[in-house]
Simulated assay, not measured.
Amino acid sequence: MTRVVVFGATGMVGQGVLREALLDSTITSILSIGRRSSGKEDPKLSEVILKDPSDLSSVGTNLAGFDACLYCLGISAMGMSEKDYTAITKDMTLRVADSLLAQNPSMRFLFVSGDGTDAKSRMMWARVKGETENALLERSPDGAVMFRPGLIEPLHGIKGQQSLVYKAVYAVAPLLRGLRLPVTNTEVLGRAMLKVAKQGSAKKILSNADINNLAAGTLGKCGE
């Protein structure tokens, strides 16, 4: 039986993760923390609405006793300065990790990053996410696990990015998958994250292929 905290449950990735967590009978308690309600109702789901989801001072000891954090909160770097993107992607994430790990030292902290993430990259988003990954792994060498999906196809009524570019890309997702490009979907990513939340992962950085294989049960024992 596993208790999880979910951040970003109203975003595309978070919606997929929350859906799978609600369907999973071995997940006994879900705490969703975000700026607005997920709109879901379930006996095992509770929600905390905060103007700043990284400021958990008002939640206090209610954060204790959780097994894993599924951190799905994120934003596109398009049109953002590096300073603003870092504040949301890196600074907020690390404040949350520090607060949760203080009360749950053995917690598994699962961070949704992205294919191409690299702290030495010339691309701003990849560099900032890479720096965030490194900082999380330093804070929790045993419990932190990075997920690097490629294109994430929204399923089960979940809405993805609404720009014309993304809509076109979603439409050709099957073709991209056939070309062996990094493609996954919200259901697969959710299942893979829950598997790691429950069992941990020997591998600390999971590629798009790892995510798909893990959800399908073909990656061995959580990344080995």
Results as ranks from 00 to 15, higher is better:
T2G: 04
T2N: 08
V5Y: 03
V5F: 05
F7P: 05
F7K: 10
G8N: 04
A9H: 09
G11H: 05
G11F: 06
M12C: 11
V13R: 02
L18H: 06
R19H: 11
A21C: 13
S25G: 06
I27D: 00
I27F: 05
S29A: 15
S29Y: 08
G34D: 06
G34S: 15
R36A: 09
S37D: 07
S38K: 08
E41M: 11
P43L: 13
K44G: 07
K44I: 14
L45T: 08
E47W: 04
V48W: 08
L50N: 08
P53Q: 12
S57I: 11
V59T: 13
G60K: 13
N62K: 14
L63T: 03
G65S: 10
F66M: 09
D67L: 01
A68E: 06
L70I: 14
G74Q: 03
G74A: 10
G74W: 02
A77K: 03
G79C: 12
S81C: 12
E82W: 05
K83R: 14
Y85L: 09
I88K: 02
T93N: 09
L94D: 08
L94C: 08
V96C: 13
A97C: 12
S99P: 07
L101H: 12
P105S: 03
S106E: 15
M107Q: 14
F111A: 01
V112G: 00
G114E: 08
G114A: 15
D115L: 02
G116A: 07
D118C: 06
A119L: 08
S121V: 09
M123C: 01
M124Q: 13
V128N: 03
N134W: 07
P141F: 12
D142M: 14
G143T: 07
G143R: 03
A144G: 02
V145N: 00
F147G: 00
R148Q: 06
R148N: 04
G150F: 00
I152N: 00
I152F: 00
I152M: 01
E153I: 05
I158P: 01
K159M: 12
Q161V: 11
S163G: 13
L164P: 01
K167D: 00
K167P: 01
K167C: 10
Y170D: 06
A171Q: 13
V172W: 04
A173I: 11
L175P: 05
L176A: 14
R177Y: 02
R180Y: 10
L181I: 00
P182C: 07
P182S: 13
T184I: 00
N185S: 04
L194P: 01
L194V: 01
K198H: 04
A202W: 03
I205D: 02
S207Y: 02
G217F: 06
G220E: 06
C222L: 11
C222R: 00
C222W: 02
E224Q: 14
